[in-house]
């Protein structure tokens, strides 16, 4: 892991709007300092009154304890680090997103809370401290054990499941932000004219459009001319 990240993990803030700062006790390692971009506290996206109320209640609720949120932040940061031109999980506000989803969907509550507790007990067993209180190298050595779902280890299975869940949250949370769209290169969600697969792509895949099929398709240069048909259903415009 790069020095950048070690340096990055220095000043410790929770979501700035809450104004709360976790002060480290003497036993914490430097790596417990972490901050992230807060997500908005209100959203406008075509909601009914009932939906607005549900969202407002969820957004106002604090579900996680501070140590839990900190653990989530550290895991998200490990999964998609910030040292990338398109930013990472913390730039994309992942801890706030994870908290919202857990509040929104009851089925996540126990797996996340229990997963964090499992992680802490495992960290104590191996390294003598909670996950947030051990060194970064120690954390990564635990992640190396639980980050691969193909590994068959019944003792570690709760941790493997939890890490997979956190990876799902992190990937989906990041790739549904503006940074994630840029990272992926997604080009859509904008008015345009679909006129088929670009020629260079067809060639690369050894594909071509069949002339008979294309004769049934939109001539985009005539799409604004009002459709008319002959009596047999042949388009005449």
């Amino acid at each position: 892991m790069s020095m950048n990240r070690r340096e990055y993990l220095k000043s410790l803030f929770l979501a700035p709007l809450s104004g709360s700062i976790i002060t480290s006790s003497g036993k914490l390692s430097a790596a417990t300092n972490i901050n992230w971009t807060p997500l908005p506290k209100s959203f406008s996206y075509g909601r009914t009154e009932a939906e607005k109320q549900t969202d407002a209640e969820l957004l106002a609720e604090n579900y996680f304890r501070e140590n839990e949120l900190l653990t989530i932040a550290i895991l998200c940061d490990i999964i998609l680090p910030n040292d990338h031109p398109n930013g990472g999980a913390l730039d994309a506000g992942l801890p706030d997103f994870v908290e919202f989803m857990v509040k929104d969907r009851d089925q996540y509550k126990l797996p996340v809370r229990g997963g964090i507790a499992w992680l802490d007990s495992y960290a104590i067993e191996i390294f003598g401290g909670n996950f947030i209180n051990i060194t970064e190298d120690q954390r990564l050595s635990i992640c190396d054990e639980i980050a691969y779902p193909g590994v068959e280890n019944s003792t570690l299975q709760p941790g493997i499941s939890f890490f997979s869940l956190m990876r799902n949250f992190t990937m989906t949370g990041y790739y549904t932000t503006e940074q994630g769209f840029k990272d992926l290169g997604y080009m859509g969600n904008t008015p345009n004219v679909w006129d088929g697969v670009p020629e260079y792509v067809l060639q690369k895949h050894g594909m071509e459009y069949n002339a008979e099929w294309i004769s049934k398709c939109v001539d985009q240069s005539r799409k604004e001319i009002i459709a008319e048909w002959d009596d047999d259903g042949n388009l005449t415009t």
Partner: peptide, 19 residues
Amino acid sequence: RTQLRYPWESPRRGASTLR
């Protein structure tokens, strides 16, 4: 309107809800 909205305009990014 929900058309042409980006996922980040929603706190749950387009996830399903009861409604």
